[in-house]
Amino acid sequence: MLDDVDRKILRLLQDDPSLSNNDLADRAGSTAQSVWRRLERLRESGVLAGQVAVINWHALGYEVEVSLRITLDKTQPRAFEEFTAAARLVPEVIEIQTFLGRVDLRLSVIARSLRDYQAIYHDRIITLPHLQEIEALVTIAQIKNDESLPL
């Protein structure tokens, strides 16, 4: 599916998504037109899903990250849909993941302080529908946070 030039272009974009098409072409050893066509093909095939700005939420004053493991009341037929719809509306919830097994979902919640987290938890989290059980894990340190693929 991907040839060596495609992989090189993707590696370059992972390292520096702000590279211009001409810079990508120079570094990939190709022409700007060829790189443009390859990028279009990668977008159309869904390999390249987009480019985003990564904002350092610590720099904006968010010092606390809590991972909440959620188990839902599965006796309610629409528990999953109603819970996730409500959780999406909580601005401090920056990630929602689903799982197979005892834990149904994981929410990643950020807060400015532990006191701020307590308010978010009390006012926005425990009021979410169909909660059966919550386990909170407070992040102490982030050892690795790299979404780059080994291309």
Rank of each mutant, 00 (worst) to 15 (best):
I143Y: 11
L105S: 04
S67I: 09
L24G: 15
V66H: 00
E40M: 05
I125M: 09
W57K: 09
H58Y: 12
Q142T: 14
R112Y: 13
N56Y: 02
L12R: 03
S18A: 10
R7N: 06
L72G: 02
R41F: 00
F83W: 03
D15F: 03
I94Q: 08
L68K: 09
L42N: 07
Q76N: 14
L107W: 02
V52F: 09
D3P: 13
P91Q: 14
L100D: 07
L72A: 01
R38G: 02
R102E: 15
P91V: 12
Q33S: 15
E92N: 15
W36D: 00
D146Q: 11
R11S: 03
T98L: 03
S18T: 10
L72W: 02
I96Y: 04
A53F: 13
L114K: 12
L89D: 09
K8H: 07
R115F: 11
Q132I: 06
A85E: 08
I120N: 03
S108W: 11
I134Y: 10
R112A: 00
L72M: 11
G61R: 00
V5K: 00
V54T: 14
D73L: 13
I120Q: 02
A86V: 05
S113H: 04
G29M: 09
F80A: 03
R41W: 00
L48Y: 03
V93F: 00
R69E: 04
V52E: 14
S113C: 02
A136S: 15
R11L: 01
N22W: 12
P129Y: 07
G101W: 11
T71V: 15
R115W: 09
F99M: 08
S108R: 01
S20I: 05
D73E: 14
K74C: 10
L72K: 04
V93C: 08
L12W: 01
V93I: 15
I140Q: 01
K8M: 01
F99E: 04
V54K: 11
G29S: 14
P77C: 10
S18K: 01
P17K: 10
D6Q: 02
V109W: 08
R112S: 08
I126W: 06
I55C: 09
E65R: 14
G61A: 00
V66A: 10
R88Q: 15
K144G: 08
F99Q: 06
K8I: 04
H58V: 14
E147I: 05
L128E: 08
V35K: 05
L24A: 07
L137S: 14
E40G: 05
D146S: 07
W57R: 02
Q33F: 13
Y117G: 11
H130M: 05
I134R: 13
L137D: 02
D123Q: 14
S34F: 00
H122Q: 14
T98G: 07
E95C: 05
W57V: 15
W36N: 12
Q51H: 07
I120T: 11
L105V: 10
H130G: 08
A85D: 14
S45F: 00
Q118G: 01
L100T: 06
R124E: 12
V103P: 03
Q132P: 00
P150V: 05
L149H: 00
P77E: 10
A111V: 03
E133Y: 11
K8T: 03
I96M: 04
